[in-house]
Design a protein around this nucleic acid. Sequence first.
RNA 1: GGGCUCUUAGCUCAGCUGGUUCAGAGCACCUGCCUUACAAGCAGGGGGUCGUAGGUUCGAAUCCUACAGGGCCCACCA
Length: 1153
Amino acid sequence: MELAKKYNPREVEDKWYKKWIANRYFNSKPNPAKRPFTIVIPPPNVTGVLHMGHMLNNTIQDILIRRARMQGFEACWVPGTDHASIATEARVVNMLKEKGIEKNSLTRQEFLKYAWEWKEKHGGIILEQLKKLGASCDWERTKFTMDDDYSESVIRVFVDLYNKGKIYRGVRMVNWDPQAKTAVSDEEVNYREVKSKLYFVKYKIVGEEGDIVVATTRPETILGDTAVCVNPADERYTRFHGKKVIVPLVNREVPVIADNYVDMTFGTGCLKITPAHDINDYEIGNRFNLEIIDIFNDDGTISEKGQVFVGQDRFKARSLAAKQLEEDGLLVKIEEYVNKVGYSERTDAVIEPKLSMQWFLSMKEISAPALENVVNDNIQLVPAKFKNTYKHWMENVKDWCISRQLWWGHRIPAYYLPNTNEFVVAETDAEALELARKKTGNAQLTLADLRQDEDVLDTWCSSWLWPIAVFDGIRYPDNEDINYYYPTNVLVTAPEILFFWVARMIISGYEYRNDKPFSDVYLTGIVRDAKRRKMSKSLGNSPDPLDLIRDYGADGVRTGMLFSSPAGNDLLFDVKLCEQGRNFSNKIWNALRLVKGWNTTNDQHTIRESDEVAIEWMEARINQVLLEIDDHFGKFRISDALLSVYKLIWDDFCSWFLEAIKPDFEQPIALITRNRVVDIFEKLMKIAHPFMPFISEEVYQQLKDRADSDSIVIAAWPKPENFNKEIIEKAQKAFEVVANVRNIRQQKQISPKESVRLFAKLENLETYFPASKMIWRLANISELDIVTEKIENAMSFHIGADEWFVPVNMTIDRDTEIDIVQKEIDYLVGFLQSVLKKLDNEKFVNNAPANVLEMERKKGHDAEKRIVGLGRKIGRITIDEIVSMARATDPIGIFDSGIGGLTVARAVKRVLPEEQLIYFGDTAHLPYGDKSTAAIQAYSIKICDIFLQRNCKVILIACNSASAAATDLVTEYVSKRARVFNVIDPVVNYLREKYRESTIGLIGTKQTVGSCVYDNKTAALGNNLVLKSLATPLLVPMIEEGFLQGDISQEIINEYLKKPSLKDIEALILGCTHYPLIKEQVRNYYGGAVEIIDSSEIVAASLKAFLEYNLLVNTKRVADDLFMVSDYTESFESLTKLFFGEQVQLEKNTLWE
RNA sequence: GGGCUCUUAGCUCAGCUGGUUCAGAGCACCUGCCUUACAAGCAGGGGGUCGUAGGUUCGAAUCCUACAGGGCCCACCA
């Protein structure tokens, strides 16, 4: 049968889900032969509908449970729903309101009847939606927190805790929601900043003139004031202590009290105390034994006790109070003020702090093991960052208000005795009656005499038993299920309910099973939109999950959700992710089409060597990635696990393996080969199945003829086997070759259909073989040969130290090629330098571990080889030069004993304008001529360190003395890190090229002439040159004094040049860095008959030639020149203009300090 | 205000006990291709001073300190 060109998830998904249910793959019962793997679903609200958070949450659970099932665990995922008392009751009330029925007009029984009807109608929709997602829950175990057995468990626990003395009844300040007329927990109150007003109100002093001004945001609560409080340290009010004031509006006399709670700096420093309506006031009230006047009704209107504004809503009462105060002349002023106001999470009504009789569960003792077992990692929170928050919360846990003034829920099993507040607590009416008779001593008491508490329990009071109660472990603590499945393995839920629910489950687990409820808690992030806004109905930014499933397939949505959702991190949802998921499904589908489309043959000759290699490689890769995936799962990195699967299938299997193995057009494939491909495909589908249950099943079924009872759902998860690491490494290299060939094709516009020849100049054939077999097909190669020399007219590339060539017809643009190669060389040289620097560092060599050292050496070695190879490619560079060279943009270092060397710098600048120069004048040791050879060498080496630190590519010794004394040593010291030039050798080389059998003159300082360095070097040339030298000591001071122009200086110069020792010369070497400045005068003397050899120019020219030859010329200046001296004077600086042609700023270097 | 946590490519994130997993992945982007499984595709490519400033170290994205800017939790000012 022809397969559709595109994968159609809709047909496939329903088909397989039905089969899975029919075959009862998801059902579980205790099986002693297997280890259990249990997950209990976080029960969604029974009347809720699936939202994106559920999708993420349940996808993760399904992935975990499916994988466990395949791994051979007895996998059990228990689904169910929560009665969600507040939310559901609110919804039913709304529904009734729409019908024109007020809740107040109904009896409890009537209301509950409506509520149950509503539940039956809307309940469980969400579970049906989960099936569309592919959730593999054991649906026969579906639980509802108000099922009879479950309710019985809840009540039993209440009675038990009561009997243990953990539950008590007390007056407490609660967060009252006047709209829902119920107390809500602290956690269900949202504080928001609101603009409000601060009213300043006068309270008259009793028995004397004057008043105290109090600031309040809630003037209506004045009706309940029973004191005014100041800080005892506040001297402004000391005189009022113990006096009485008159509460406005109600004219009640109340005391002025002093308490540290009051902030002297806020408002007037004077606080009105309303114990019934503010938690802090309540506490102060307790301390001072103040009267408590509750001025509100349950619905937020003013009660009789308020005396005025009775029956008015609290906000109306506020404006009325303000108005009245103003009329009474007691309102001083009103200020704008921003404060935080609590809102009910459920109804969004402003929370009213209110004293109320509530039921409480004492948390301190009962929660101790829950803290301990998370801290000691007996229960792991994933990600672990929540551990700290959890710890903080549990250490400061407050008693839990467990009563709610609602009807929908578990009614508190407390029965009040007639005409008293005394009560009994029992699981059933009958038991209650018996207890009541006992307590009263009245055997005649009937049930009708008892009045059961009207309130129900907080929703969390049932859901905190979830992992136990779904297995009926409260009522039957020793039943088979609970013994087998408890503790469960993983809980997957949202961090928002870490304390509401997770912590409390842990508490109940230790209380009722003496064991943890689960081993790991995986906390998912919040699903947000691309703008980081939380997805919510009210914002309308949440897509309907079922629409997504329809459009992208369940597999597509599942993978889409997981592509970017590390544990605990928010998921920024984007339909593009689902698109990516859908595309992945399609990719798999098309791979199936390819494999199914092959014609097979039994002819063994069709088996290619490359097929064997490809299969071996693919199998190795699967094993390798399988290890990765298992590791990811172990750390709950589900997203990473998915990405590994994605890349394994898309990149490795489709892009490389199938391309390598697919037969040529219309050619058959050997049956043996095909079968092995099918096995590999099947294995991949098993790995993908937890993430993509539907398409993996479809492909699994299509690949082979399967028995009806066979399904990928119950197939075994592949175990990672030992694998051939070598083939993976070799294939990696082979694929690199392929990619490079493809790149060349792209550059040279060679069609993939046109085959090319490929040549390799290799160090070792073994590094590719046998993976190299795959290159032929993947790169469409007609000929592959090993060569020993580079191929002409070919594009080339490197893999490690190997070079590969693809001959191309077109002429290659030499310049661009050189450009490209040069860039690569630049990079490598920089890299090599950094390596050499490390290896030169004694401390590194001594301290670094052997393997790191070894690695560095190898890195350096490889880089050198690469550089040599690349240099040869340009064909102009000798190996030593390449290795020693630095990058073109690196600076040139020049040093001299003083600033005379600036003439050399100037000459260099002229011919190499873009180079960055770093000049060092060792003015602290001026002049070098006086110093011993050893001293000059020592100075030179230290100066070279400065240059090396700054990555100088060339170090130029612009000093004749240092050139003579230190060139050899410096060259050796600098080694490959930079090229060393001096001012003598280039001149000598110049003579060699130009003069033969000639007489050459030299003028220089006494030291230079006395050292005979020029004599020795010219003699060594063998050109039969005669060198006539003359020391000209007057010239340096003369130049430094600025005597350059004019007759006197010309006279002095003439006097020297007239000397017989310079007679009959053909050329004259200016052997001192100062002398270029008097070149004109010297030339004047000879009138052109003698060549004046300016060593600075010669050196500059030779440097330029070197840089050009080695492609090291800096063509784009990247940094400014830098001039350093070791001793600074202003006269040095002023002399720079003379030598360098422009004034430069000298920077003092503290090298010698 | 207290506690926790984060800052790495245009976006979302990996990067473990300092050193070849050291600067990475996916997406996005750019270029060229309708090549007989797949245009929901193929091939190739360019992106980052690892928030800033110090310190420790032979060596820091990684450890320490301070600062800046996000996020979460707790408490809450009349």
